[in-house]
Nucleic acid binder design. Structure first.
Length: 906
DNA sequence: CAAGCGATCAT
DNA sequence: ACATGATCGCTTGT
């Protein structure tokens, strides 16, 4: 309890939040699209949504003890009687805004927030009265209003939050901030405003006098009254203008004076928080068709105490590490039959770099025991015991990164079965848009909280990666951290309905990927060396040719900055698209420029770009060829938020394919000794097939069942001609629309891509949607549903959370909408090929075949075929991929075979 | 030396 | 202003 410093205020400190209801509702209305937020019965709810979010935000961040919302009343105010032009000339209320104020008030009722309106007065007067009351009582008031009349209320204990952008970004105005911004104190702000005028209220000020002059005058004469008394002294145009408009100024000053003595409730209870009713809020939100996102953000302070009580779960477990044992040999066998018999969390101190396993030790942790095992000092008995334990599927093992562990252990001939939980995968499934480092940090904070709850937080930071000969204790603590985090992540998985995805898809896949990485793919360095040498020659040639076109000056062709100088300054070419830092020099721009100017420099520059890119790719690949003559990429399961894999060190998922020259790189990827062929198998148009499945569009489904070429079929419908009469142009345009749709392509973007007018692009899209309405409905509903639930979902229930779908920032919101369109499609394709990989790997193993999967490239698998196994493997792969998951159209799989990756293309 | 940017490769 | 990635070289900031 803090004792009061002044008499008469023996009550607890009050922090009253005052909101200008109409002003904020209007702001919300214009910050969010009215068409994007409706209750399903034609009533727009964007203002209600934005208002609620603003309220939740401010309450959560400012922690007021009391709240009141003030509204203007219909029917005018006393100010209209003083000045009949007050607020004249305002635009009519938008039709979609109508009714939303009543809905906001309904929401406030459910939240137990008092709202006020007083006949004949404005919201500002209500706020002024209450703010003044708080100020006299030396309590705090916090005003949220975009109306400038609120500025005069700022003072000791009274702060104004002015919305800056949208409804969530606020600027804090205390007396100092007001003075800083307007050069007058808050109480003199109405004086300034009277001189300057307020166009929003149709109150013209003194012509030729702006805030600078007004502030100067007020500073000189003290206040408006003294200024007007000395009006004769002021020289110049402004002085005359002032004398000519004294009447206006006096009127303005009367109009903008806030009324501070309204009769308003003054009951302790009236404005207190905590009187909301969760059920009522949900009813109102149901009625408004609000989704889960905003419900989650409802601050608990609105509800009665105890209803949202979160105190629970005191941990009985001590934070002290169990004694670390270092079992060796026969001891190990005993230990593994003892406390570790049911499973353990596992940590490893190695790294997977260029295919070299470097693990020296592993740490195992259970609730009661902890062991660090030195792999290099194990004797035969110990190794045998460890191998048996690791490969016993009935013993559950958890790890931060199971794939990494697989590498380190299998490099020493130890195979692992019976994985339980992989923290990195669990974290990713729950929060796919977070970077792994952030997730690790998040996990660490969870852990820290738990340890603090146990009041025995260790001082050391935990290093889940393990590293450079760190002490046994560090490794042991990492294993202990895994152990402690597993139950938390299991709960997390349940909450995100991702348990099955983790247990039955991602974690088993990790082992498969680990094997693929370890095997790698054979690369012929000589082929790459020749290719590099050839491109080096061509690079010199085109560079010289380019220089000769610009007076022989040897600029750096790789420097966008220097290129801009040459192209747009020296050669005076027309400036096209802009980038953040200047004018674009990308291939599209350069090609356009070439068409316009025919300047040979541009052609040479483009050629230089191509060969440079080629060399870059070739040299990168060569650097990654390991001792064994193979490239071992790393596949990541926790990077691409849609659920795709990513590949790095090097990236083998973006080896050139589009151009003839680029494809030659693929001829360096070859079948290795002891194997017969490379086989590639890819899904044909899997994303469009998923679109057909998810949208249930009959036309699209028929397209795939007909066996006709997809784009030809679709084009024949769109352009209303027989399939055989579809021209190449029709087909390629239709194809662009088909693929663009899944990416949220706009008419603008389509026009740019196809070099057609925006009108033609719009027509194309409309024509498409006319014939394939199911697709349009599906896309629209995807976004709508995601906005409501807060996430998108794939066919396997993989979620992606998209809070930006309700952002008041248009760019962010529209980006989230495109993501919402694309994620279920791209993500479902990722799900399907992952299922296929598990199946193919399992089938190969069960059939006792030596052939193996080497790479995955989103919709394609690359396998290495052992002698004599081609037919069997081909069937197995085609079936495995084709039947991986049943959707309403067939999943077609194309197969190619050859000595090199290029030859295996089909 | 790191970080941001622009460009370009893949599906 | 069309989704998901990786990588490189240049430029700029620490």
């Amino acid at each position: 309890m803090t004792s009061s410093e002044h008499p008469g205020s023996d009550q607890a400190p009050v922090r009253l939040l005052l909101i200008d209801g109409h002003a904020m509702a209007f702001r919300a209305f214009f910050a969010l699209p009215a068409d994007g937020f409706t209750d399903g019965r034609g009533q727009s709810t964007n203002a209600v949504y934005g208002f609620a979010r603003m309220l939740f935000n401010v309450v959560a961040s400012e922690r007021p003890t009391h709240v009141a919302v003030a509204f203007d009343m219909a029917g005018g105010t006393f100010r209209d009687r003083i000045y009949d032009q007050y607020k004249a000339g305002r635009d009519e209320t938008p039709a979609q805004f109508i009714g939303q104020i009543a809905l906001i008030q309904k929401t406030l009722d459910a939240l137990g927030v008092t709202w006020l309106e007083v006949p004949d007065f404005e919201a500002d007067d209500i706020i002024a009265t209450l703010a003044t009351r708080m100020r006299t009582r030396e309590q705090e008031a916090l005003i949220v209003s975009s109306d400038r009349d609120a500025i005069q209320l700022v003072g000791p204990g009274v702060t104004l939050l002015q919305p800056v952008k949208g409804v969530t970004e606020m600027r804090r105005m205390d007396p100092a901030a007001v003075e800083e911004k307007y050069q007058v104190t808050p109480e003199h702000y109405p004086d300034l405003a009277a001189l300057v005028g307020e166009s929003a209220d149709n109150l013209p000020g003194v012509p030729g006098v702006g805030p600078k002059t007004a502030a100067k005058w007020i500073g000189k004469y003290g206040d408006l009254e003294s200024l007007l008394e000395h009006a004769e002294e002021i020289t110049g145009k402004a002085g005359q203008s002032l004398r000519d408009h004294v009447e206006d100024v006096r009127r303005n000053r009367v109009m903008n004076a806030a009324v501070t003595d309204l009769e308003l409730p003054d009951d302790e209870v009236v404005f207190t928080l905590g009187r909301g009713d969760r059920a009522a809020v949900h009813d109102v939100f149901d009625d408004l068709a609000f989704g889960a996102t905003i419900r989650r953000d409802l601050p608990a302070v609105f509800l009665p105490e105890g209803e949202d009580g979160t105190d629970a779960a005191a941990d009985e477990q001590a934070a002290e590490l169990p004694e670390i044992t270092r079992p060796e040999g026969k001891d190990l066998a005993a230990a593994l039959r003892g406390p570790f018999a049911d499973g353990a969390a596992l940590a490893i101190d190695g790294t997977w770099e260029l295919g070299l396993g470097e693990a020296r030790r592993i740490a195992l942790s259970t609730e009661s025991a902890l062991a660090v095992i030195d792999l290099e000092r194990l004797d035969t008995d110990g190794e045998r015991a460890l191998a048996a334990w690791l490969s016993d599927a009935s013993v559950r093992k958890d790890a931060h990164d199971a794939k990494l562990a697989v590498h380190e252990l299998s490099a020493r001939g130890l195979d692992v079965e019976g994985w339980g939980t992989d923290l990195s995968l669990a974290e990713f499934l729950c929060r796919p848009d977070q970077r792994p480092t952030d997730l690790a940090g998040l996990a660490m904070r969870h852990l820290q909280e738990e340890l603090e709850a146990e009041q025995a937080a260790p001082q050391q930071t935990l290093d889940l990666e393990g590293d450079d000969g760190a002490a046994d204790e560090s490794l042991a603590r990492a294993a202990d951290a895994v152990r402690r985090l597993v139950p938390l992540l299991r709960t997390d998985l349940e909450e995100h309905e991702a348990t099955a995805l983790h247990d039955d898809l991602e974690l088993p896949l990790a082992t498969v990927l680990g094997e693929m990485e370890a095997v790698g793919i054979q690369v012929e360095d000589e082929v790459l060396a020749d290719l590099d040498a050839e491109h080096e020659r061509r690079q010199t040639e085109v560079a010289e040719a380019a220089f000769s076109e610009i007076d022989g000056e040897r600029i750096n062709l790789g420097s966008p900055k220097q290129l801009q100088e040459v192209l747009y300054e020296r050669l005076g070419m027309p400036k096209g698209r802009r980038t953040k830092t200047g004018y674009s020099t990308n291939a599209e721009t350069l090609t356009d420029l070439f068409e316009k100017t025919q300047h040979p420099f541009l052609a040479h520059l483009l050629a230089h770009r191509d060969v440079t890119k080629m060399r870059q790719i070739i040299e990168t690949l060569r650097r990654f060829i390991a001792e064994d003559g193979r490239i071992h990429t790393t596949f990541h399961q926790n990077i691409a938020a849609t659920g795709r894999l990513s590949s790095n060190n090097p990236n083998l998922q973006n080896i050139p394919m589009r151009t003839e020259d680029g494809r030659r790189i693929r001829s360096a990827f070859v079948v290795s000794e002891g194997y017969e062929q490379l086989l590639t198998a890819d899904y044909s148009q899997i994303e469009m097939r998923i679109m057909a499945h998810l949208s249930e569009d009959e036309g699209l489904i028929e397209a795939f069942r007909s066996g006709e070429d997809l784009h030809r079929f679709v084009a024949s419908r769109v352009f209303d001609v027989a399939p055989e009469d579809v021209s190449a142009a029709m087909r390629s345009k239709t194809k662009a629309v088909s693929y663009g749709l899944a990416y949220g392509l706009s008419a603008f973007g389509l026009a740019r891509q196809l070099h057609i007018s925006q009108a033609e692009a719009t027509g194309l899209r409309d024509g498409y949607f006319e014939r394939f309405g199911g697709v349009r409905d599906f896309l629209r509903e995807s976004v709508e549903q995601a906005r409501s639930t807060g996430y998108t979902e794939t066919i396997l229930g993989r979620r992606r959370y998209l809070p930006d779908l309700t952002s008041d920032n248009r760019q962010r919101r529209e980006n989230a909408e495109r993501v919402a369109l694309n994620s279920p499609i791209q993500g479902s394709a990722a799900d399907i090929i992952k299922l296929a990989m598990l199946r193919v790997a399992a089938d190969l193993r069960e059939a006792g075949l030596r052939s193996r999967v080497l790479l995955q490239v989103h919709d394609e698998l690359v396998l290495e075929i052992a002698p004599g196994e081609l037919e069997q493997v081909r069937d197995l792969v085609v079936t495995g991929m084709g039947d991986a998951y049943e959707i309403s159209v067939p999943l077609e799989v194309g197969v190619g075979v050859g000595r090199t990756w290029l030859d295996a293309a089909h």
